[in-house]
Design a protein around this nucleic acid. Structure first.
Lengths: 154, 154
DNA sequence: CCGGATCCGTTTCGATACTG
DNA sequence: CAGTATCGAAACGGATCCGG
C-alpha cells in the first residue's frame, strides 16, 4: 500500500474533516459510481468517463477503506478480483451526494451539458419524492450486491 | 487575475461538474465560512483556522465568482476593501453543505474531534428541524449583510 | 493596513508502462 | 485483473512584494 507522494487527508481542522473527504473529487466520484452505477471492481472504477488514473484510484480506495466508508471483499469463487462495497457510513452518504447533484443540476446548467440525465431535476423542493428516490437507490444497491462476497481483513 | 499555474476545474465530464466544484476543499470551506461565520472579506477568509494561502484564496474567489456562486461588492464608504456575498445559487448550497456536515458529524467522529460543535448532531433523521435550521441560517445570513454594498462588475 | 500578484520549493496529480 | 513504479506537469504553501 506504499503511499508516498500521495494525498493524505489532513483532518484535525475543526469541522472540516467531512469537508476533507467530500472536498475530494475522486472520492466523491467513486462513491457515486458505487451507488449509482453499481460499480464494484477496480476495473469498473477505472473505466468511468472521468478517467481516474490507477494510482489515484488505488490511493482513494485505500483511504475510503481506512475511513470505513467502503469495504474490500473477495469473491468466494474468484480470488483474483475484489469487490468494494459501501459500509453503512458509505450508504449514509447517498442523500448527501444526491443533494449535490440536485444542486448542480439547477445551478450549473451552463457548465453541465447534461450528457446523461439522472432524472433528478424534479426532486428539488419535493421532499417526499426525494426521500423516495433515495431509498430506492439504497435498496437497489443492496439488492444487487453479489451474494458470494467475503470481507477481507488484510 | 492572471491565473497561470492555478487549478482549473475541468468540468465537461458527465454529471460531474457539480462534483468538480464540491470536490474542492477550498471552495467548500469558503462557502461554509460565508454562511456559517459570516465572513465576507479577503482577510477574514485568509484567517480561517484551515489556513488557506492567499494565492489559492484569490484563485478560488475568482472561480466562484465566475460560476456565479458568489459576488464581489464594494463598500460604498471604503474603497479599500471588498465584500464577497453569496448569490442565490450560492445560498442554495446551504442545504447541501449542511448535509455534508451532518454526515461527517455522525460518521467521522473519530477523525473529527468536534473542536467546535455547530449543533447539528440532532438534525439527522429530523427533517423538520433540519429545514428550520437551514432557513434560519439563510435568513440570518441575509439579515447580517451590510447595507452599504454595491455590486462590482469589473 | 488591505487585497491581491509573483516567485519558488515541495507535494500531488495524471498518463502510461510495468508486474504478480 | 489489480494494482505499483516512474516521471513530467500541475497545484499547493509560504513568503514576499506591491499598488491603493
Amino acid at each position: 500500500m506504499s503511499d508516498k507522494n500521495q494525498k493524505q487527508f489532513r483532518s484535525g481542522c475543526p469541522v472540516s474533516s467531512s469537508l476533507d473527504l467530500i472536498g475530494d473529487k475522486w472520492s466523491l466520484l467513486i462513491i457515486r459510481d458505487m451507488f449509482y452505477f453499481h460499480k464494484r471492481t477496480f476495473k469498473e472504477f477505472s473505466s468511468s468517463p472521468e478517467k481516474i488514473s490507477t494510482n489515484i484510484l488505488s490511493n482513494r480506495l485505500n483511504q475510503l477503506e481506512n475511513m470505513k466508508i467502503i469495504q474490500k471483499n473477495q469473491f468466494k469463487d474468484n480470488k483474483k478480483s475484489f469487490a468494494y462495497t459501501l459500509t453503512e457510513s458509505g450508504l449514509c452518504l447517498i442523500p448527501t451526494i444526491i443533494e449535490i447533484l440536485i444542486w448542480g443540476d439547477h445551478n450549473l446548467q451552463d457548465l453541465n451539458p447534461g450528457l446523461f440525465d439522472l432524472g433528478i431535476s424534479d426532486l428539488k423542493n419535493n421532499q417526499v419524492a426525494k426521500e423516495n428516490y433515495i431509498s430506492k437507490i439504497r435498496e437497489s444497491y443492496l439488492k444487487k450486491l453479489p451474494h458470494s462476497l467475503a470481507p477481507l481483513t488484510n
